[in-house]
Design a protein around this nucleic acid. Sequence first.
DNA 1: ATGAAAGCGCTAACAT
DNA 2: ATGTTAGCGCTTTCAT
Lengths: 363, 363
Amino acid sequence: MLNNHLPATLRDVAELAGVSTKTVSRVVNHQTEISEATRQRVQAAIDQLDYRPNILARSLIRQRSKTLAVIAWGIDYFGPSRTVLGIEQEANELGYSLFLSLVSQPTDDHKQILDTLISLRVEGILWVIPEVGDNRKWVQTSRLDHLPPIVFLSMESRPGITVVSVDNRNGARQAVQHLIKQGRRRIGIITGPLTWWEARERYAGWQEAMQEAGLKASPSLVVKSDDWSALNGERGLRTLLAQAPDLDAVFAGNDQIALGAMGTAHQLARRVPQELAIVGFDNIPEAAFYWPPLTTIYQRLVDVGRIAVKNLHEMIMARRLQREPIQPVSTTLKPELVIRASSLELPSHLESIQKKEVVRLRF
Amino acid sequence: MLNNHLPATLRDVAELAGVSTKTVSRVVNHQTEISEATRQRVQAAIDQLDYRPNILARSLIRQRSKTLAVIAWGIDYFGPSRTVLGIEQEANELGYSLFLSLVSQPTDDHKQILDTLISLRVEGILWVIPEVGDNRKWVQTSRLDHLPPIVFLSMESRPGITVVSVDNRNGARQAVQHLIKQGRRRIGIITGPLTWWEARERYAGWQEAMQEAGLKASPSLVVKSDDWSALNGERGLRTLLAQAPDLDAVFAGNDQIALGAMGTAHQLARRVPQELAIVGFDNIPEAAFYWPPLTTIYQRLVDVGRIAVKNLHEMIMARRLQREPIQPVSTTLKPELVIRASSLELPSHLESIQKKEVVRLRF
DNA sequence: ATGAAAGCGCTAACAT
DNA sequence: ATGTTAGCGCTTTCAT
């Protein structure tokens, strides 16, 4: 059977129930000023016709789309996808539908996407493109009050805009301080790509922690990656060991880089953690199952998404009420250190094995 | 400054330019039947007022929202997020905007979300919830012609519906056949949760490949996981070794399970791959950097998403043209075997190391 | 408690 | 080449 009959409208329901459209509208919107008898009659007609209100028409007249947009990059990576998950959850709870737009590169031009979103009459925008190079310069020079309210995720706080992010610098400091507490002194770093704000922050955190402990943050302890992949961890550790043969620990820009570094350590027969402690960043789910399990920094990325939507909602409401726009607030979440075997002097859960037998892994 | 001035409408532009609304409409929609002089005058007015067409109003009158919806689960996992990436890319290229709806569990009720999507007047739906338990039973009993066109991803093909998926069974067979070719005979399997269609298919593929090779697919070679996590790989390998001490290879339900199994192998000092070959499924980006690098099955998940949108688009067009709905077609993509060290008798890239020195890894 | 009528912003006949 | 008019489906005064 063909499905060429058009969907039922409010008027169809009204005619079937023998009432006016306004009455049907009252039923659909759960308004009270209606007798129970007619309400039931209308409801019967609705069910019979399988009527669903047309939200497009509703949005048009109410001047509210109840729609947000997320413009994101890297949704196939752990961090962004967790953040989008949180965004969707909170948006759903607040009754917003969510448009998803992706850019293929963080540096891609977003103007066209922004135009589309304005045309779609979204009420607010969540900006989930990482700050890379000068791809945020436009924010300073734009009249943001001519755009829908925007919340920026994971970027440097700036006056006049609303940002939700994780304190990467603090996370890096926690990681390095932990290594120092374990007695490590020659602590190298394999950074992420320093065009990224997050990579720079983690790098700065390493520097700060080293200096605070009276350790030299010497250039020979630094290798800069050009991306976030495990490949850079492999190469990075080789370079680092060439520059600083007495290296006793590595802070990696993220868990993938840490994974690559561990692989190289195995190949070079450097025992982890005894000879070389390794700490990552992100706490991806697999990190607990690396060999050895990886000490890393946990960021509450789902919460980043949820908080961003909450803030956005408040901005939307404030603007609707024609009040002065609320002062932009930046939220920064503290990350948490997750200690596992890769950074411990004596990985306790492995002690028993060592006693029982001489473990000899040869590849 | 407050942003309480309403966005400009077509009529505003028309008045400013001294033309009719229809003329402005022509400019906005790049229609040709208009003189260059007026086109420019109208364009100037558009720029001056910063006018953007209201897509809600346009959708209402055109009876086309140019909008698709993806309803998904597990967007923070590798597979679904890659698929959504492909969906977004293709939707964008075909001029569709994309609504994103997530369920928190594959078994969650989706009826309410479906209602919302119909109300939003999406033109088509991409179903990215994995087939778990009987959560697809509704498809058989529903009048799908009363819903927007739907394409189902990653599920068992059924007559009457459009499905795009990967041939998991074939992938598993490739994995096991590869192990057999390497001389392995006692090939165990740690399945994913068998409530999942994909896990069952991979399990069936293992059985088929074993039987075809004249090997016994004995129950002692099987461990069934209750989820897809690395933890099950750890436990799984222990159980498997208890059941079949002469095990010489493991096919894991996915790469995470494989990772967990490798961790246990290390702890138990079983050399991988010499004593125990391991193959995973999915080819997550980190798999190449596991220790040893993991042999696995690659699925073109981005293409799954893209093809799904292409098919959906055709269904939409067919229905719009009031023709008979096109026959549902199911598309099945062949996965590819990616061979790495974890399954090779003599991992070539490690030979040099073995010659140079006796590698002794002790944890 | 219910209804009539106006209109949200746009496009598509159908003029001229 | 340009304009007039009707109306997409809904909500909202303002009546009754």
